[in-house]
Design a protein around this nucleic acid. Structure first.
Length: 492
RNA sequence: GGUUCCAUGGCCGAGCGGCUAGGCAGCGCUCUGCAAAAGCGUCUACAUCGGUUCGAAUCCGAUUGGAACCUCCA
């Protein structure tokens, strides 16, 4: 698409809690930042959902013709486990337990993260910055906030002064909290803390003697605070004010709230125009979470090697499953839901195959242009992929009817339909055609030979032999399909 | 305890005041030696109780049940 479609896209902005017309800061360009993973363990399916959701958003923006710069960080400097002075971060803990360098841990799980997302057919982001690669910039921002009087130093650590910031700003506006309530509701921490107020958060933290990852700073050896990297890297690559900031719902508070505060404290500007939050994937009705162990790893999902599943599922079928729910809704994961979705996916892919065989007629019995409009309005309405998919199935019905001579399309309409279906199915939703019918010439040679032998038996009315061939092949996972024009097969 | 969100047919899942999404399963049909596969058709639900309205799954209130966040997590 050469020119951007009329400005019809609206997105749900967490900041205003409403859908807003999407108008980029710079015409035709979109800056999008998404909070990436902390790489101290394998990604689980819940993590993947968020990134798949934003991959779809990235794809649609590009499809509309926007020039998108998609930045997604890798958090490779650990977040502290707790607030105490001898607190240790997750990467360090893992490194210590496995007797490895922290950066070995980081490398291992970064590779895993990339592998998994590639299997789900995610595009890589345009820039994937790391926290450890931006220590200098983080120190600089901490310094600026300190100079602006909105942070204070205690024992080599720098804390953000939330109360002071809140005098001229609203800390909590994104997550709908206000500081007075936070006061009364924050649990008192065990042991003494250097913080003036419990809701203050670290911009820079002094490293304890046992800490494995630390860097030199004006305040001594230490490491950056929990939230600083995203503020630094988003503004470095997208500017002081950019269009979209995304992440999982769980990051809304405190992470994103702190990001806003840091950015405003550092440069006085509201950093993000549209805050987008992807919802959680649940398992047994409870959120998937590394810390509680309620997770499903992609490996188990693909192989089916888990009591949760009856069989393995292809990544693209899982992606389709996720696309059948809206990105802002909680989605519960289950074998049955996934299996149902997989069948629907196969139906869609079958239709895409039939689509290639259609012949144009003189008239159309289906309004393709109106259908296309419906597809775009679904996506323009805050990326409503479930509605889009329902329209795709409507189109599949037409496709099958045309193949069956019960409906017809003109050449122009047929071309338009093919183009639009391909755009939405493969480009926007990012699905992959995984049919492996003719994957191996040798396999089809063998199966076609068996089909021939079976048909000979059928001609002789030797049903026991013909049925044996059919059933044994089925056991192996090869499905024979008797149609009007002979027998074909598909491999499960 | 506080903040926010959700409750839809056998299952999953859209819907944002009237025009009864879609998928899966079931049922019927076409095809077939019988099946399977595939296709077509069909199945009319909105937690409970009130209220607003000519009209409510959709708005308001209450009740019940569930989730997320408030502590690292996508």
């Amino acid at each position: 698409m050469t020119s951007i479609k009329e400005n019809k896209l609206s997105v749900y902005n967490s900041l205003s809690r409403s859908k807003e017309l999407f108008v980029p800061v710079v015409k035709d360009h979109v800056g999008m930042y998404v909070c990436g993973p902390t790489v101290y363990s394998n990604v689980h399916l819940g993590n993947a959902r968020t990134f798949i959701s934003f991959d779809m958003i990235y794809r649609y923006l590009k499809h509309l013709g926007y020039k998108v710069r998609y930045v997604r960080n890798i958090t490779d400097a650990g977040h502290l486990e707790d607030d105490s002075d001898d607190g240790e971060d997750k990467i360090s803990i893992k490194a210590r337990l496995e007797k490895l360098e922290p950066m070995q841990i980081v490398q291992q799980y970064t590779v895993d993260f990339h592998n998994v997302l590639r299997l789900f057919n995610n595009y890589p982001p345009d820039i994937e910055p790391t926290a450890t690669g931006h220590i200098v910039e983080q120190i600089k921002m901490a310094k600026t906030i300190l100079e602006n009087g909105l942070a204070y130093e205690v024992n080599g650590s720098i804390y953000f002064d939330v109360e002071k910031y809140n005098k001229d700003n609203h800390y909590g506006k994104l997550s709908g909290r206000n500081i007075d309530e936070l006061h009364s509701n924050t649990r008192t921490l065990e042991g003494q803390s250097d913080k003036k107020n419990p809701q203050d958060f670290a911009l820079w933290k002094k490293a304890s003697p046992t800490h494995l990852q630390f860097w030199d700073s004006p305040w001594g050896d230490g490491f950056p605070g929990w939230h600083l990297e995203c503020s630094v890297m988003s503004t470095k690559y997208l500017g002081d004010q950019f269009d979209i900031h995304g992440g999982g719902m769980d990051l809304k508070f405190p992470h994103h709230e702190c990001e806003i505060a840091q950015n405003k404290a550092a440069n006085g500007k509201e950093p993000v125009k549209y805050w987008l939050h992807a919802n959680m994937l649940t398992l047994n009705g409870k959120r998937m979470s590394k810390s509680t162990g309620n997770t499903l790893n992609p490996d188990e999902l693909f192989s089916g090697d888990t009591p949760l599943l009856e069989k393995g599922f292809h990544p693209t079928a899982v992606r389709f499953f996720m696309m059948q729910a809206h990105y802002r809704s909680v989605l519960d994961f289950s074998n049955d839901a996934l299996a149902a979705s997989e069948k629907g996916f196969q139906r869609l892919m079958n239709g895409m195959k039939v689509l290639k065989t259609l012949e144009a007629k003189k008239t159309s019995t289906f309004d393709v242009k109106e259908w296309i409009e419906k597809c775009y309005s679904a996506m323009d309405d805050d990326f409503n992929t479930p509605i889009l998919i329902s329209h795709l199935f409507d189109a599949m019905k037409i496709v099958n009817q045309v193949a069956d001579n019960k409906a017809s399309l003109t050449k122009d309409d047929l071309e338009l339909l093919i183009k639009t279906l391909n755009d939405f199915v493969f480009e926007v939703l990012g699905l992959e055609d995984i049919s492996i019918d003719n994957s191996s010439d040798k396999l089809s040679g063998v199966v076609n030979m068996l089909i021939q032998m079976r048909n000979d038996a059928r001609n002789d009315k030797n049903w026991s032999l013909s049925d044996e061939i059919r059933d044994k092949l089925k056991d192996i996972g090869i499905q024979l399909k008797d149609g009007k024009d002979g027998t074909s097969f598909s491999v499960e």
